[in-house]
Amino acid sequence: MNKVFSKPKYLKDVPFHYCPGCGHSIIHRLIAELIDEMNMGLRIIGVPPAGCAVLAYNYFDIDMCEAPHGRGCAVATGFKRSQPDKIVFTYQGDGDMAAIGTAETLHAANRGERITSIFVNNAVYGMTGGQMAPTTLLGQKTSTSPYGRRADVEGYPLLITELIASLKGAAYVARNSLATPAKILAAKRSIKKAFEVQMQGIGYSLVEILSPCPTNWKLSAIDSFKLLETRMEKEFPIGVLKDVTKAKEEA
């Protein structure tokens, strides 16, 4: 009998702790598949965040180092600068990347650090129980924006990926969504490209992935995936925001 589906080589044989319908397990799988397909397993170092994905090191069968909340890109910089031959990636949530870690993220991108960030945007603080995130949508109710996010009180959703795309040190910047199987495969292509850009040594690469959080959105898994398309992708348009390799080809 042919085996047509199995756990990726670089995911440990343990069950995920993530909630049913959560996007982290999908994204973990995409990264683990690419580590295998791109032969990166013996020279890759991952930096998980504080947040739901802090336990990523329990799942990936690669070297991983936890970072203080928001400091992923600084820790990754330390790894990459002292081991330039290694592939280094951060895995960060919206609070980690776009609130407490904004400075570390923007400056690492601006320096063109040869690292890759996988930025999981679910518009909410998951691990702490559903508080407002920098990417929470206008009108979205969370435990710390109980009346719905109001622009004049809590400000607007922060589009950090657009900010990073404007920086000269950023070489590849894309936003993807987990809304459909086709979009999941597109996300995988973006992550692959991001790692390729790192290996080519041309700058910082970032893939933002719009991901559902059914538990804190208080929706069913199916409705959460629908909401990715009906709401999230409206505020956070998907696509490749920047690709300097393409610009070079065209030139």
Binding site: A74, V75, G78, F79, S82, Q83, A103
Partner: peptide, 21 residues
């Protein structure tokens, strides 16, 4: 390697990454 961090917070965390290396 010398690198001027964007803050003391970033700098100590770069040290952390290098130390773990």
């Amino acid at each position: 390697v010398f690198l001027q961090g964007e803050s003391e917070i970033a700098s100590i965390n770069m040290v952390l990454g290098a130390a773990a290396s």
